[in-house]
Design a binder for these strands. Structure first.
Length: 490
RNA sequence: GGCCCCGUCGUUCAGCGGUUAGGACGUCGCCCUCUCACGGCGAAGGCACGAGUUCGAUUCUCGUCGGGGCUACCA
């Protein structure tokens, strides 16, 4: 049994983006790898940014990717509650303790005063930051502020004025920061809610978190967090700051530069195992020349040592490649299960397909599997299989290219009548027919094969012609060829 | 501006003082072939720059340049 306890601590502010899934996945992997626990904690301390369905989106997203947690909202655990807004008294208690020990102080500044202060600093070319004006108020001043503004005071951390903080980050190595560059950060907001700075430290300690995986954007405030832990008399957890994933524009990957919400990827036809494989490699490496890893592989290989300290630029093409790889690995039954909803959404299959339809879909997908890069491409790839014989569309270019050749009508007519007379109608027998006709007319294979393909599918690309013909069946092929014959000019 | 982090093909990841600098995606070419795709083979393409240290630097140190993050009563 390991003592590793990692937590994923998102804020319920809307769509959990794909970077969040990467963090959660790495937490989960590390817990699985070490036999530790994975904890979910909701950091809802900013009621302004919170969305109504925020928590549900987080829960849904984690479930979508199979990232089950051992403790958290809904399932509880030894350190419940796991929602910060339900832990307010806990934070208040520690804030009181810090104030009593002179390690934090009440600050009465109004937002306007702070804005003015920053404005002045800017004007004078000084680095912006709280000037600690309320840190050393005398008794009379404090009493005065307390009586006039006491009800909306904030509590700030009294950063030691001298010294420095040194710590070992699991990813970035030794980090040293001088205390004097640190701010007297707000611990408790005037609305009674704690800031991340306080709440996360208190909870990480109380929940016995051993390793904190979080974005690199937190690196600058890590020393502050360590100072807070120490002020409370606690040993800080091990920090592993993760390189931020970047978009194609080399900016933090987000909605603005192409990142989709975690739940959007499956909707667009991406397989969870492909997305996870891709995400695992966004800033982590097993230090070998390999790309394809199953989730069990990753559980076995994932370690702190492989986490890189430079930000990867997310490449959508690579994700697409992963997806194609995983689609091809799918069993036919699994592929059909997962693709059916896309076919239904496109109106190509009804809501309750019968066994015969399901079998046909399986047959069709077997032919299209190797050319699908996402599940969402299935309708466009396979519509001609599923649409009625007089309904599927003929590609205009295909028609002008192949139906105008001299003699094409005669060749097609002969194929059609031979097809009609065939005893068994399958890929082998129809190919034999077509080859024979090619021979009889003494033309190049394409002069027969391509027009037949366009006739039965309406297009020039797709699975092998004879497999297509077999899947379609004789009746549909004959009707389609008749329809095509009506369009032929050559 | 200040503080912090980073710098190997277009992208990504190996390399950890001596290598023809390797794999993958993408690109291009060839093969397979009824098309498309899959698959196979091959090609182009990189150590940001400058000083040091060293017999020898992609690898160690410093500087320059470049990129990123932070600088809220948001996380």
């Amino acid at each position: 049994m390991s003592n590793v306890r990692v937590r994923f601590a998102p804020s319920p502010t809307g769509a959990l983006h794909i970077g969040g899934i990467r963090t959660a996945f790495w937490d989960w992997l590390y817990a699985k790898h070490t036999g530790g626990k994975f904890i979910l904690r909701i950091e809802d301390t900013d009621k302004n940014r919170e969305t109504a369905d925020g928590v549900q989106v987080i829960l849904d997203s984690l479930r979508e990717y199979g990232l089950d947690f051992d403790e958290g909202p809904g399932i509880g655990g030894p350190h419940a509650p796991y929602v910060q807004s339900e832990r307010l008294p806990i934070y208040h208690k520690f804030v009181e303790q810090l104030i009593a020990e002179g390690k934090a102080y009440r600050a009465y500044d109004t937002p306007e005063e702070l804005a003015r202060m920053r404005e002045n600093q800017q004007k004078r070319g000084l680095p912006p930051g709280y000037d600690r004006r309320h840190r050393h108020l005398n008794e009379a001043e404090r009493a005065e502020y307390e009586s006039t503004r006491g009800s909306h005071a904030a509590v700030r951390f009294a950063v030691p004025l001298e010294g420095k903080v040194t710590f070992q980050d699991a990813v970035y190595g030794e980090i040293t920061v001088e205390n004097r560059v640190l701010e007297d950060a707000i611990l408790l907001k005037s609305d009674g809610y704690p800031t991340y700075h306080l709440a996360a430290q208190v909870d990480d300690h109380l929940m016995e978190i051993s390793h904190v995986f979080r974005g690199e954007e937190w690196l600058p405030s890590a020393p502050l967090h360590i100072l807070i832990h120490r002020a409370l008399g606690w040993e800080p957890p091990i920090y592993a700051h993760l390189p931020v994933m970047m978009g194609p524009d080399k900016k933090k990957f987000g909605k603005r530069n192409g990142a989709l919400g975690a739940l959007e990827y499956p909707k667009q036809g991406y397989l969870r195992e492909a997305t996870l494989n891709f995400l695992a490699l966004q800033g982590w490496s097993a230090k070998e020349e390999r790309d394809l890893y199953s989730v069990p592989d990753l559980i076995e290989k994932f370690d702190l040592d492989g986490i890189l300290n430079r930000s990867p630029i997310s490449d959508p093409e690579k994700l697409l490649w992963f997806n194609g790889q995983y689609i091809r690995q799918l069993s036919l039954a699994d592929l059909a299960d997962r693709t059916l909803p896309f076919l239904q959404d496109a109106g190509l299959v009804g809501q309750n397909p019968d066994a015969e339809t399901l079998a046909y879909i399986g047959q069709v997908l077997a032919l299209e599997q190797e050319r699908m890069k996402t599940l969402a491409e299935a309708p466009a790839l396979a519509d001609f299989f599923l649409l009625a014989d007089d309904e599927f569309l003929f590609d205009e270019k295909a028609v002008t290219k192949w139906f105008a050749h001299p003699g094409v009508g005669n060749r097609l007519r002969r194929v059609r009548s031979r097809f009609a007379a065939l005893e068994t109608f399958d890929a082998a027998s129809t190919e034999e027919v077509v080859r024979k006709v090619i021979e009889e007319f003494a033309v190049k294979g394409g002069e027969v094969i391509h027009p037949v393909r366009v006739a039965v599918s309406g297009r020039t690309t797709g699975p092998g012609l004879f497999e297509t013909i077999e899947a379609l069946g004789r009746d549909r092929c004959l009707r389609r060829m008749d329809r095509a014959l009506g369009m032929i000019t050559g």
